[in-house]
């Protein structure tokens, strides 16, 4: 029954998937509570441009995705301040720019055949070099979130008040945007650029239904994300499905189950 564990690529996919399954909702809790969940969506389109640049120029696509999405994250943060009352405008601008670059380069690139696995996620895509990069980035992201936990929390709760209470809002916002772009870049291979935003959003939406405290919300979000990731990867192995889509549909299913149980048993 556990025959999938005999395959090296499955072990790698599960390891990478579980790391992504921890950081995506961890970062997602802060993003969603700041009503910035669409940042994941915008950054993933930019990451696609990064992948396209890598494929076109012959770099390792994840490296170019990381660099391009960090630049885009900083641009979003700058635009978000320039258009303070229309923060979502900055996301629309960056998303469009990213997709524009991606489509042009994919068209020009000879190697565009591989692009589909970056769009939808592919468990066979995770190489042994990728595992080290994903592990390294995961540890960095967790360390940063732990260190700035209460600062990020205060900014998410009420940015104006946090600023006035002496929380260094500007540097923390920039650090948080970099963390978000790293999360997006390292999730590309498992869920694909088109579906990363869902892994940042849906398990968190489920966790928010149950969490009475911020810590418990994070705990539940990661819990639901890990169930989805593992089920999705294993199902995609047996039925030859796209891993990203399977993971996301599983997380939607969990969300519906929790909504249903809460309603039937009238839990608040």
């Amino acid at each position: 029954m556990l025959e999938f564990l005999n395959y090296r690529f499955m072990k790698r996919a599960l390891l990478a998937g579980n790391l992504v399954g921890i950081v995506a909702p961890l970062v997602g809790v802060f993003l969603n509570l700041r009503r910035l969940s669409l940042i994941g969506h915008a950054l993933s389109h930019v990451a696609l441009a990064g992948v396209a640049i890598g494929l076109f120029a012959g770099f390792f696509p994840i490296y170019s995705a990381i660099i391009v999405s960090i630049i885009a994250a900083l641009a979003i943060e700058k635009l978000r301040r320039d258009y303070a009352d229309y923060a979502e405008l900055s996301l629309a601008i960056i998303l469009a720019a990213g997709l524009g670059i991606a489509t042009i380069l994919i068209n020009l690139s000879q190697r565009s055949a591989g692009i589909q696995s970056y769009l939808f996620g592919s468990i066979s895509l995770v190489g042994s070099r990728d595992i080290y990069i994903i592990l390294f980035l995961t540890l960095i992201i967790i360390a940063i979130i732990v260190k700035y936990y209460y600062g990020f929390f205060f900014l998410a709760f009420n940015e104006d008040e946090a600023r006035l209470a002496g929380v260094p809002a500007k540097p923390l916002n920039i650090i948080f945007m970099i963390v978000t772009s790293l999360t997006v870049a390292l999730s590309i291979q498992i869920v694909g650029t088109l579906l990363i935003a869902s892994l940042i959003t849906i398990p968190v939406a489920t966790g928010m239904l149950l969490g009475k405290s911020f810590k418990m919300t994070i705990f539940y979000s990661i819990f639901f994300s890990l169930i989805s990731v593992n089920s999705g990867i294993i199902l995609s192995f047996y039925y030859d499905l796209a891993s990203g889509g399977t993971i996301i549909l599983f997380s939607v299913l969990l969300l519906l189950v929790v909504i249903f149980i809460k309603k039937v048993f009238n839990i608040n």
Binding site: L33, R35, Y150, G151, F153, F154, A156, F157, N158, D160, E161, A162, A165, G166, V167, M208, G211, K212, S213, F214, K215, M216, T217
Partner: peptide
Amino acid sequence: QVRDFNQSFPATVREIIASNLYN
């Protein structure tokens, strides 16, 4: 702006107060 926060924000009283000890 003290009351300009999302009323469904999942945070306890303890967490809210702890955040002001950041520095």
